[in-house]
Structure formats: structure tokens, C-alpha cells
């Protein structure tokens, strides 16, 4: 076997040591790792740019649509408000108490031997709370052989007439007193009575009576 003499072993050892230098290796690892990280960063940056482009496109689209949408939203809100306001106003209009039909009914009840001297009253309460009612005072005089009976006739006529159009009609005498003075009706002197009627009713239309229950098939009609 031939003997090999390494006369440059010192140089070779130094060269190996230089090659195994941890700092150098570390730097190389760092550079490689840095390169990998840089590639990953570039990949992410590319994706981000792609998303940015998409976002710009979507935003451009939104900028085009936004004025229309804002206008539509504004108009919707305006229309909703108009609808609500109109509904509330309509409710008020529908809930009004009409005095003309009431005055007409009162005029129908006044017989020639009675006279009204004062009608005073108003609408009270609230529809929403269910407390709405009309309260009035009707003052007048009645004449005849039985003036109190004439006044009572007027009261009953009012109950009947107002009961046709309104609910919970309640008419009572607050005052009914004979007067000392006589009045000439058709050439005859008759006695007089002074009355004040309190009138209360709910201005809603009266409830219709419940429908009769259906008859049995077998039963005969009379």
C-alpha cells in the first residue's frame, strides 16, 4: 500500500474550517430563509393587489349605484311618512262628529208646542282611549194642557231619533219645572214648563242586533 503524505494539511484544515464557519453557514441560511420569506411576501402582495383591484371595481360600481340607492331610500322614507300621515289624517277625518245630521234629527223632534231656547255642548274624550262621547244640554219650554208630558214626548222622540244613528244614547231631565206664565197657542191659553235635558251619546253608529240563529231544517216556517 502506498504511503500518502499530506504536506498541505495545515492549509486544507484551514480551508475546511473556513467552509464550516458557523457564521458563514448562518448567513447563508439567513439569505435562503429571507429569500423564501420574500417570495411568500410577494405572493401575498400579489394576492392583496388582486383584491385591491377587485375592491376598486366594486367601489366604482357602488359609486355609480349609490346616488340612485340613496334617492330611492329617501323617497321610500318620504313615501312611508306620507302614507302614515295620510292614514292618521284619514282616521281623524273619519272620526269627526258631524253636527249637521244631529241638528237635523233634533229639529225633527221639536213639536209645535215645544221650543228650544239653547243647545250647548261638544265632543269630549278620545277615540283611541274609547272615551269619546258627545255631551249636550238642551234647554227649552213646552206648552199644552200637560206641558210636562209635552217635554217628556220631546225627550222620548230625541231618544228614539238619536238612537237610530248613535250608540249609548242617554237623555235625562236635568230640570223640569212648571212656569207661572200662560201662553196662547191657537187662541187657547195653555200652561208652560221649562226644561233642561242632558244628552249624552257615543257618536259611533249603533250596533246592529245579532242575526237570528239558523232554524232547523225540519221545523216549519210560520
Amino acid at each position: 500500500m502506498a504511503i500518502h503524505l499530506n504536506l498541505l494539511h495545515e492549509e486544507i484544515r484551514q480551508q475546511r474550517e473556513r467552509q464550516r464557519d458557523p457564521l458563514k453557514i448562518g448567513m447563508m441560511v439567513l439569505i435562503v430563509f429571507g429569500a423564501i420569506l420574500f417570495c411568500y411576501y410577494m405572493f401575498n402582495a400579489y394576492r392583496t393587489l388582486e383584491i385591491k383591484a377587485k375592491l376598486s371595481a366594486v367601489q366604482r360600481q357602488w359609486v355609480k349605484v349609490e346616488p340612485n340607492v340613496t334617492a330611492a331610500q329617501k323617497r321610500s322614507a318620504e313615501l312611508t311618512e306620507i302614507i302614515k300621515t295620510t292614514r292618521v289624517l284619514e282616521d281623524y277625518i273619519e272620526d269627526r262628529f258631524f253636527w249637521a245630521p244631529f241638528l237635523e234629527k233634533v229639529s225633527r223632534c221639536v213639536a209645535p208646542n215645544t221650543q228650544l231656547t239653547n243647545i250647548e255642548g261638544g265632543v269630549e274624550g278620545n277615540t283611541q282611549e274609547g272615551t269619546r262621547k258627545v255631551a249636550l244640554l238642551i234647554e227649552g219650554v213646552a206648552a199644552g194642557r200637560e206641558p210636562r208630558a209635552a217635554a217628556e214626548d220631546l225627550r222620548q222622540m230625541l231618544v228614539e231619533q238619536l238612537g237610530q244613528s248613535y250608540r249609548d244614547v242617554k237623555i235625562e231631565f236635568k230640570t223640569l219645572e212648571d212656569l207661572d206664565t200662560l201662553i196662547s197657542v191657537g187662541g187657547t191659553n195653555t200652561a208652560m214648563a221649562h226644561y233642561i235635558l242632558t244628552v249624552n251619546f257615543n257618536p259611533k253608529a249603533p250596533l246592529k242586533p245579532a242575526a237570528a240563529p239558523p232554524t232547523d231544517r225540519g221545523s216549519k216556517k210560520r
Binding site: 289624517l89 277625518i93 269627526r96 262628529f97 231656547t117 239653547n118 250647548e120 261638544g122 265632543v123
Partner: peptide
């Protein structure tokens, strides 16, 4: 839009 809330008629 107008509603009469009170009425007084005196002879």
C-alpha cells in the same frame, strides 16, 4: 280637516 268640537245655539 276641520272638525267642530263645541257648539252653542241660543235663541
Amino acid at each position: 280637516l276641520l272638525s267642530i268640537t263645541k257648539l252653542a245655539i241660543r235663541a
